[in-house]
Design a protein around this nucleic acid. Structure first.
Lengths: 331, 331
DNA sequence: GTGAAAGCGCTAACAA
DNA sequence: TTGTTAGCGCTTTCAC
């Protein structure tokens, strides 16, 4: 049913119907109520596409997520989604999910959305500029903000707090020989960790850091190489929980008790982290808040175009569970 | 830039531009190429909202997912998404994600989508009828199909195969006293499992089945209650992997070696199932295929309205890992 | 093979 | 307070 048919059916003009539905424009409460009730009864709902065409707004946001599947980013993805949907919902907005591998520019160019959230992949920087260049607001998530560009905001994870807390906690517990395992070539977490340890007077030698893959198996072998040294570390910090799972396995196989003889700390707090045996002490990344912040920033950009978006940093934090204790002599 | 501005800029009529872009209608290859190239150069893209208004089609599907967050359905959700996006993408369609807690009718009534995929929650049956009643095609996922309704199709997980395989495999291994743990009041899996065991001549007594919560902790205590009996089961089958994780922990705490002294089989094959120690033997649910099937069925409904949609059943299957062995005497 | 013009369903400026 | 009407940007008959 179109607005004309509906208006005719209840004996008013289309304009009156529109006014009744939107609430603005002068209209008598009586008419308004009558129209609203009739709409209910006759099941009239405005055609969203027509509304969008005339309004030049879609009340839609597109989320661009990286090339899935990756078990890790999957988790981050789902959690972000919670926050994004919540914030969107509160404003009557809908969420379009861009297909992995496709460019979100498709939606931007066709004016099919009012803004875009970039999930935080390498390459997002260039993408953000391009999007903003077309006058479409955009916000990046992930780990490194984009600043100073008109129409681009950032809601990112601040890795520093959690990593510092790990360093402090480990040192306070009495650990001095600490190992670090990462899948990255250049790990920001490693840099921060080493920095903070140094500040606390503890050195993290290069040969106590090992670079490996992303699977637990690879984490296990990395841990093994560290733990079978003549002067093994008393604690292990891994860049991801998956690697920590492997470390846990390696320790068990070597007959090293966790946490008594070896402390292990993961990073990311994936759902399974609390299910390991013992439950993994790790660093929580609050993607839900990050998603919510991203949308909040996006809306401030939508409502006030022409300015650089702000940057919000969501700090990580240490979650104490049961894989850390003061070091004891092995054997 | 509108089609009129663009057409004027390159010295043709809007109609010609439209024909060039869509490829149908009579148009000379020369003009077509010229228009296409100019569009590229000048950056003209048709306004999607206008296209949708005039076409009466949106090239958009809405996915309705249940009330999140639930760690389990989250996994299913992400996996389904892969299949859904893939199938959608292949047809040039986009995906709208309905916010949890909101009714997808919002999009249906406003003609903002061409079809809907229901994630598979209780209540979907009524919803499906309502949606189809408005002439909008719809497909349910999940575990129980909806059949015989015009405009409604189903792509569901068939639990039977995997469960049968578990029963057969366990019995073949020599297990006769088998325990079952579930969070459900009425578990279809339990029914199927008991049935198949009976067929194989093995009884599953009521007091070897325990109903508990969804967390691993609850799984652990359920397992403990079974394992501390005077005649404990030699194998445990749990309705979910999370419960199996708990069973694994319980066994370890009781000093029972898995799989030598106790076999454990989970269900769902969540990502972490392969990360347990030892890796969990479980039943795989192929949500990606299910999502893909759902979209395929939805499109057949979109292209041929007025008929009941077909039902596709995606069978589960046993994934052998390392938590099952032939039973040995404990102690 | 190409252009002119009518409408898709809605909103908002303007009239009444 | 309400109705009339001119677009929003596009596609698609229908002439040419």
């Amino acid at each position: 049913m179109t607005i004309i048919e509906f208006a005719r059916a209840i004996g008013v003009s289309p304009a009156t119907v529109s006014r009744a539905i939107h609430g603005h424009g002068r209209i008598s409460p009586t008419t308004r109520n009558r129209v609203l009730q009739s709409a209910q009864e006759l099941g009239y709902t405005p055609n969203l596409n027509a509304q969008r065409l005339v309004a030049g707004r879609t009340n839609l946001i597109v989320l661009n997520c990286g090339p899935q599947p990756c078990p890790l980013s999957d988790m981050f993805f789902v959690e972000s989604l919670q926050g994004i949907q919540e914030a969107l919902c509160a404003r009557g907005y809908g969420l379009l999910l861009n297909a992995p591998g496709n460019s979100p520019m498709r939606w931007v160019k066709a004016l099919a959305v009012d803004g875009v959230v970039l999930g935080g992949d390498p390459g997002d920087e260039r993408l953000a500029e391009e999007i903003a260049g077309m006058g479409m607001p955009c916000v990046v998530m992930g780990t490194r903000p984009i600043e100073g560009i008109v129409g681009v905001g950032s809601a990112v994870t601040g890795l520093q707090r959690g990593v510092r807390q790990v360093a402090q906690m480990l040192v306070e517990c009495g650990h001095r020989r600490i190992g670090f395992i990462t899948p990255c070539l250049l790990s920001e977490v490693l840099v921060l960790f080493r920095e903070e340890l140094a500040r606390l007077g503890v050195e993290l030698p290069t040969d106590y850091t090992v670079r490996t893959g992303v699977t637990p198996e690879e984490g296990a072998s990395a841990a093994r190489s560290l733990l079978t040294r003549s002067d093994p570390p008393t604690a292990l910090f891994t860049r991801t929980d998956a690697l920590a799972f492997g470390a846990l396995t390696a320790a068990r196989q070597l007959g090293i008790r966790v946490p008594d003889q070896l402390s292990i700390v993961g990073h990311d707090d994936v759902p399974f982290a609390k299910l390991t045996d013992p439950p993994l002490t790790t660093v929580r990344v609050d993607c839900t808040t990050e998603g919510k912040a991203a949308v909040d920033i996006l809306f401030s950009l939508i409502n006030q175009p022409g300015v650089p978006g702000r940057t919000e940093i969501i700090d990580t934090k240490l979650v104490m569970r049961e894989t850390v204790a003061s070091p004891q002599r092995r054997r």
